[in-house]
Amino acid sequence: MSSDKSSIIEKAQKLAAKGQIDKAIEEWQKLIAETPNDGNIYNTIGDLHLKANHAKEAISAYLKAADAFRGAGFELKSIAVYKKIVKIDPSRIDVYEKLADVHAERGLVANAAEDYLRVAKHYAKGGDLQASVAVYRKLANLDPKNFAVRQKLAEICQKWGLAQEAAEEYGKVLEIFKDRQMTSEAQQVIDQVLDLETSRSGQPPVENDASKEKELSRPPEVIVEKAAPVENEPLAPEPASPPMAAPAVEEPLPLSARMEKSLQEGDWPAAEVLMEELRDQPAESLAFLSKWVEYFLEKKIHPKAFLVLQKAVSLAESENMRVSCRSIIQSYLASNPEQISAHQLLGENF
């Protein structure tokens, strides 16, 4: 068969050189019966169809080539062929999902995240919410311990009225926070789940250990009883004392100095208070948040850096400053390129 195969290939190449594309394709197809899983044959047939402007036939052949390459363990070849297909027809969302799957298998997390996000958005826009959630879950599974992606997925499910899916994802986020001993963040998730249960049932949630714990953590009310009025006896006038000088009042530091001080001391709670004073100064607020993102990145505290980054993106969206925020996200990705949720922020907002 090897000699027959060589002669067929030689004949097909000569026909193609003469511009007889259809006849060349016929020759290549003769080889499929003997080697049906040869991705190279399908790829060549696809190239010939594309040369003849047969887009539909080219895509059909390329799909078979990509599947054959992937089945044989040649993921990089399958990626190259899938890219050919979406270049011919960018509307082939099914191919983008296949491409994302192969990227994920290869450990190309950033590429997989970009493609999954494109697919999830497409399904959501078309009203296929379940399909969109399924793809978002693939995105989240690229980094199972990434709470930001899980939390975003839970919020999406809740927004779309998929209460059961939202509860499942919030549960996963809560486990991550508990493992990392992120107590305040865990309590916020508990509150969100309780709100979700209320909206599902229409009734206030049954008091559980978490809500009891929250209630017990509040300081007790101190009731001060008013004492009965006492009749004062007239007292002898005290001798007049010389007037005391008023204590010196320390001038508060200007806002810019307090902002710099919070950064120098790494006092994020103080920075959050200062953000309230900056409420009417969005540009200054964004610049301040950008410095905090850099601060946490330098300290290698990536979860906190991402939380601040989310605040910056939210501010940029509300104040129409997306262009300014893009550089903050890119700076974060330069330090932490495998952070899927940061790629997601970049894809969603820019």
Rank of each mutant, 00 (worst) to 15 (best):
residue 201 S to P: 03
residue 177 F to D: 03
residue 192 Q to P: 01
residue 181 Q to W: 00
residue 200 R to P: 00
residue 193 V to F: 00
residue 241 S to W: 01
residue 206 V to F: 00
residue 192 Q to R: 14
residue 168 E to A: 06
residue 201 S to R: 12
residue 197 E to I: 10
residue 230 V to D: 06
residue 223 I to D: 08
residue 183 T to D: 11
residue 193 V to G: 03
residue 176 I to H: 06
residue 227 A to N: 15
residue 241 S to V: 11
residue 175 E to T: 06
residue 190 I to L: 10
residue 204 P to Q: 02
residue 197 E to W: 00
residue 168 E to I: 10
residue 212 K to Q: 07
residue 186 A to W: 14
residue 220 P to E: 07
residue 226 K to C: 02
residue 215 E to W: 06
residue 188 Q to T: 14
residue 187 Q to G: 07
residue 219 P to K: 08
residue 190 I to Q: 15
residue 203 Q to S: 05
residue 234 P to W: 10
residue 195 D to S: 09
residue 200 R to S: 08
residue 200 R to G: 01
residue 240 A to V: 15
residue 181 Q to A: 07
residue 232 N to V: 00
residue 235 L to Q: 13
residue 182 M to R: 08
residue 217 S to A: 12
residue 222 V to A: 14
residue 222 V to T: 14
residue 178 K to W: 04
residue 208 N to F: 00
residue 201 S to N: 08
residue 165 E to T: 05
residue 217 S to M: 05
residue 211 S to G: 05
residue 220 P to M: 03
residue 226 K to Q: 12
residue 195 D to G: 08
residue 199 S to P: 04
residue 186 A to L: 08
residue 229 P to L: 13
residue 233 E to G: 08
residue 222 V to E: 10
residue 202 G to T: 09
residue 192 Q to C: 05
residue 225 E to L: 11
residue 181 Q to L: 02
residue 182 M to P: 01
residue 215 E to P: 00
residue 177 F to R: 09
residue 204 P to F: 00
residue 225 E to T: 04
residue 196 L to G: 10
residue 224 V to C: 10
residue 225 E to F: 04
residue 189 V to M: 11
residue 183 T to P: 01
residue 176 I to V: 10
residue 214 K to A: 14
residue 239 P to E: 11
residue 189 V to G: 03
residue 203 Q to H: 09
residue 198 T to R: 15
residue 184 S to K: 15
residue 240 A to N: 06
residue 189 V to Y: 10
residue 217 S to I: 00
residue 241 S to N: 04
residue 219 P to E: 06
residue 189 V to D: 08
residue 185 E to Q: 13
residue 208 N to I: 05
residue 242 P to C: 01
residue 199 S to R: 15
residue 223 I to R: 14
residue 231 E to H: 04
residue 177 F to Q: 06
residue 232 N to D: 07
residue 193 V to L: 11
residue 177 F to C: 02
residue 192 Q to A: 12
residue 201 S to V: 08
residue 194 L to Q: 15
residue 185 E to C: 02
residue 241 S to A: 13
residue 196 L to I: 07
residue 204 P to E: 01
residue 192 Q to K: 15
residue 173 V to A: 03
residue 218 R to Y: 01
residue 178 K to M: 02
residue 184 S to F: 04
residue 165 E to A: 11
residue 195 D to A: 12
residue 176 I to C: 05
residue 211 S to Q: 12
residue 206 V to L: 12
residue 225 E to S: 12
residue 238 E to I: 09
residue 219 P to D: 05
residue 175 E to C: 02
residue 230 V to R: 13
residue 213 E to F: 05
residue 215 E to D: 07
residue 233 E to V: 09
residue 211 S to R: 15
residue 202 G to Y: 13
residue 243 P to F: 12
residue 226 K to I: 01
residue 199 S to L: 14
residue 239 P to C: 06
residue 218 R to A: 04
residue 235 L to P: 02
residue 234 P to S: 08
residue 237 P to R: 09
residue 197 E to S: 14
residue 239 P to N: 10
residue 191 D to E: 15
residue 242 P to R: 03
residue 214 K to E: 08
residue 180 R to Y: 03
residue 216 L to A: 05
residue 219 P to T: 06
residue 242 P to L: 04
residue 218 R to H: 04
residue 241 S to H: 04
residue 242 P to F: 01
residue 243 P to E: 06
residue 220 P to W: 02
residue 196 L to C: 09
